[in-house]
Simulated assay, not measured.
Amino acid sequence: RGAGRRAAPAPARAAPARRAGRMTRVAVLKGGRSLERQVSLKSGARVQDALERLGHDVVGIDVGHDLVARLRDAVPDVAFVALHGRDGEDGTVQELLEALGVRYTGSGVSACIRCADKVLAKHHMRDAQIPTPDFFAFTETAFKQLGAADALPAIEQRLRFPIVVKPAGQGSALGIKFAATPADVPGALVAAFSYGDKVLLERHVRGRDLAVSVLAGEALPVVEAIPREEDFYDFEARYEIGRTDFVCPAQVADEVAERAQELALAVWEVLGCAGFARVDLMLEESTGELTVLEVNAIPGLTETSLLPQAADAAGIAFDELIERIVALAPAVA
């Protein structure tokens, strides 16, 4: 497996009988304790409904301190990871599933770690010569003990305003702030540090928000997100129905769509993703160039999420999408 999964021991006790030749028991992991809990619950509920329609025996698990016990009781054939944010996208639950010998959907531990840390992902992209907006990243310790604040004027000069300030480890546009002037930077940093101990200062790319979902190593049609009122596709615009218009396939030139898909597949390979993922890009207004912002190893599966829309544009209905994702879960050695 490209994402580097390890061999794992067999479950502690034998699973109940299944229908011959068909995997039927699926544990849907959702909820959890991250700031994306509500989105995860919505994704998980849609997945659970689809799996039930498909005839699977489904066990929904709101992930908490009793996760191991519940997995041992359920003895699933596979775990469908619909757990967004901390614990779900950063390799934590994947590591635990491997220790228990439970096969699971999506990318493996190492790929999840790379995708979840925006700074690490951007360094991998830069090393692979994949275009991503210029950036600098610092920990809270760098500001408190190494005087990083004194370097801000030089950073601001190199990135030029406006600057995007965001936490290194949050998804769904949580904690992102725009600094239009130097006076805005301290407040943006304080806001970003409230979400984690590492922040990313990134050149703002004005243009069109595009996303390319990848399923089993194949790029799906490009989606464009167009916020109706805001200039920025933020958390509320992503998940509140009616806040954003989605166009799929995106109304861009064929060569732009092809380039976006090429970049998405390049990032998929570099970060070692597997199963499914979503790559977010910007099409810069002034240059017409595409740049990659980040990769989501566990993309949303809600009614407003981009992966299901892209799959639908490719002729893959939601239930079929979920069935394919389950089928892609690798066997445990």
Rank of each mutant, 00 (worst) to 15 (best):
G171E: 06
V205N: 02
T141K: 05
D184C: 06
A179G: 08
A20L: 15
V214W: 01
R278L: 10
K118F: 00
A79M: 09
Q94A: 07
T304C: 10
Q309L: 15
V256H: 03
V78T: 07
E285M: 03
V267S: 01
R18I: 10
S172K: 09
V75Q: 10
D184P: 00
I316C: 09
V295C: 09
D245Y: 15
E284Y: 03
V205K: 10
L67E: 00
H123P: 00
Q48E: 14
F161T: 11
Q48G: 14
E255S: 12
A225D: 01
A99G: 07
V58F: 05
V270T: 15
L293Q: 02
T291M: 13
T141R: 08
T291K: 12
K144P: 06
I316M: 12
F235W: 14
L159V: 14
V190K: 14
V190T: 13
L146Y: 07
F235P: 01
G175L: 08
R72F: 07
L41Y: 03
V292M: 01
E240D: 08
I316W: 14
L35M: 08
V185I: 14
G106F: 02
V190N: 10
A266N: 15
I155W: 14
K166T: 07
R33I: 06
I155M: 13
I298E: 00
E230Y: 12
S107L: 07
F178N: 01
E218G: 02
A277N: 00
S110P: 02
R46D: 05
A151P: 00
A69P: 08
A274S: 12
A260K: 09
S305P: 00
E240M: 04
C273M: 07
A237Y: 04
G242F: 12
V212E: 01
L83T: 07
D57Q: 13
G44Q: 02
S305C: 03
A191Q: 11
Q48H: 10
A121Y: 12
K144Q: 14
E224H: 11
V59Y: 06
Q170I: 02
E294T: 01
G64M: 11
Q157M: 11
E230D: 15
T105N: 03
H56N: 14
E284R: 05
A17M: 07
D90H: 06
A10H: 10
V164Y: 01
P76E: 12
V212C: 03
T132K: 04
V58K: 02
G175S: 09
R238A: 15
T302K: 02
L271V: 15
L152E: 09
R160C: 14
V270N: 15
L293I: 03
G288R: 09
V68C: 10
E240W: 02
F232L: 12
A327Q: 13
D197I: 15
L321E: 04
